[in-house]
Each structure stands twice: as structure tokens, then as C-alpha cells.
Amino acid sequence: MSVSQADRAALTPILEAQPDLDRWRLRAKTVEEPESGSDLALDDKIFPHMAISQLARTSLVFSGEHLRLALDAVHAKQLYPSSHFTVLRGALVGAAQGVWILSPDDRRERRERGLTVLAEMYSQMGKYYDSLAGLSQDDQERIDDQKDRLSDRKAGGTAVRTGRAGLNLTDVIRASAEDTFASAGHHEAVCQLWRETSADAHVLGWSVFRRSSFGSPDRRTGIGVAQAPGSPGHVAEAFLPSYRMLKHGWSLFDRRCEQRTGE
């Protein structure tokens, strides 16, 4: 991978994220529980089977994992015209989901958002269990037991919710962008990134056209050849918003985990 001056300028802020990503990687090795009396400690009481603090933390941890994978490819001098952006879409989802849960100052809203994510997780688990077929009798009995426990958990989570809205990731992305970035331009750029990387995740290809250079079209067919070798600038455009949102998410998590004084 040859590096021009413009490429180097695009890569520099990505490489500078390494210390934060390493620090967050080390944090993920041990369970971090909120201090007694903190916002998240109080949030967690509503559904002890799955702490809201850990739902938020897991979202942040997985976001960092995706960012490290994207950065590992850069260190290996490999740029991918589509798969880099599939990975970075995962980073954006994790960071946004964590920020979305943690950002409201209203405890009822934080709890409802955490329980909304949990409801989606349980729903997808249920669909997976229902899809299993051709199991042995022993395996089927184990799956049936897990489905029974899952049904109990779903009912318990539903009972303590204040609403019934499902998880809408497009709304989550926008709300978290607005909480993280000050300018409307940044908000729209993040939403555009979310829409564009959908094409990468679903292998539809049109997003790669935006990252390609085109040769002269054939005079007979009007069709030209596109080249998409991978661009540091394009990777930076997807990497940096997710990284900055993740940094904001960890800051929120730490603040919500600290014991509140004077209350």
C-alpha cells in the first residue's frame, strides 16, 4: 500500500486512536460494576437478570473490538473497499447503542432504552432457537429448557417496561449523533454513513461505486471499468465518527457509574 501525503494525513488520526483502543481493550477483560448509589446502580435494579449497565458496556466493548479490527488491517497495510466498512458499521452500531442507553439524564428514559435493547436481544434469540431443526432428543430438550427460560425473561422484561416501541437503529444512530456532535453537518454525515454502509453489510455494491474511480466507457456499450483499491480517506471518514462516539460513550459510562454525592 503506497502512501501519499494525503493518505498519510488521513491515516494519522486513525493511528492516534490506538492508545484509547488499547485501554478500552484492557477494560473489557474484567467486569466493571457501577458504584453503589450511582445512576447505573439504580438503573440496574429494575431488571436484575440483565443489568442495564452491562448492556451499555457490552455495546461499547464490541464497538471497540470492531474498531481494533479495522485498525489492525491498516497496520497490516491492507485497505478493503467494502469489508472495512462492514466492520466500521458494527463499530458505529455498538457506539451509538451505548450512547443511546446512557445519554438521558432521566432515569426512566435510560431504563426504557436499556429494556428496549434487551427486548430486541431476546426476540432475536427466540428466532434463532425456533429455527433449529434436526436436533437429537437430548439437544432438543436442552433447547426447550432454554426457550422456557427465555420466555420467562421476556415476560419479566416486558412487565417492567413503560412502553412497547421496538428498537429502531436508524433512530438510535441519529439520536446518538446528536448527543455526540455539536453541528448539524456532523449529524447528517453520521446518518449518511449509516445508510451507505448498509450497502456494504448487505453486499449490494452501490457504496463501492462512490469509492471508485472510473475509466473511459466503452464506445459500443457505454460501460466503463471501475477500480476501488481502498482509500485511507474513505476509511477515515467511517472510522473517526465511530471512534469519537465511542469515546463519548465511555465517558458517559464512567459518569453514570460514579456514586452521586449530595443526594
Rank of each mutant, 00 (worst) to 15 (best):
M1Q: 02
M1C: 05
V3M: 10
S4W: 04
Q5T: 14
A6V: 11
L11S: 07
L11T: 05
L11G: 03
E16A: 14
A17W: 02
P19Q: 00
D20M: 13
L21Q: 05
R27S: 11
K29S: 13
T30A: 15
E32P: 02
E35T: 01
G37M: 03
G37V: 04
A41H: 12
D43F: 06
K45S: 07
P48N: 09
L55C: 15
S59E: 11
S59W: 05
F62G: 09
G64V: 05
G64I: 01
E65P: 00
E65I: 06
H66D: 09
L67I: 04
V74N: 03
V74L: 04
V74I: 11
H75Q: 10
A76D: 10
Q78P: 02
L79N: 02
P81V: 01
F85T: 03
T86I: 10
V87A: 10
G90A: 11
A91R: 02
L92Y: 06
A95C: 04
D105S: 12
R107Y: 03
R110Y: 03
E112M: 04
R113H: 00
L118D: 02
M121T: 08
G126W: 06
K127V: 09
Y128M: 14
Y129H: 13
D130Q: 14
S131C: 04
S131W: 00
S131P: 03
G134M: 03
L135G: 00
Q140L: 08
D144F: 01
D144A: 14
D144I: 01
R149I: 11
R149S: 13
R153E: 14
R153L: 15
G156I: 01
A159S: 08
V160P: 01
G163T: 15
N168P: 01
L169W: 09
I173G: 05
S176I: 05
S176W: 00
S176N: 04
E178H: 09
A182H: 07
S183H: 10
S183A: 15
A184G: 13
G185R: 08
H186F: 09
H187M: 02
A189G: 05
A189V: 01
V190R: 03
L193A: 06
R195K: 11
E196Y: 07
E196W: 12
S198D: 07
H202P: 09
H202A: 04
H202N: 10
V208T: 13
R210W: 12
R210L: 15
R210K: 11
S213R: 14
F214A: 14
F214G: 06
P217F: 05
D218I: 00
D218W: 01
R220E: 14
G222S: 05
I223M: 11
I223R: 09
G224V: 05
V225E: 13
Q227E: 14
A228W: 07
A228F: 08
P229D: 10
P229Y: 07
G230W: 02
G233P: 01
G233R: 01
E237L: 13
E237P: 07
E237N: 12
S242D: 06
S242E: 00
Y243P: 02
C257S: 15
T261L: 13
G262A: 08
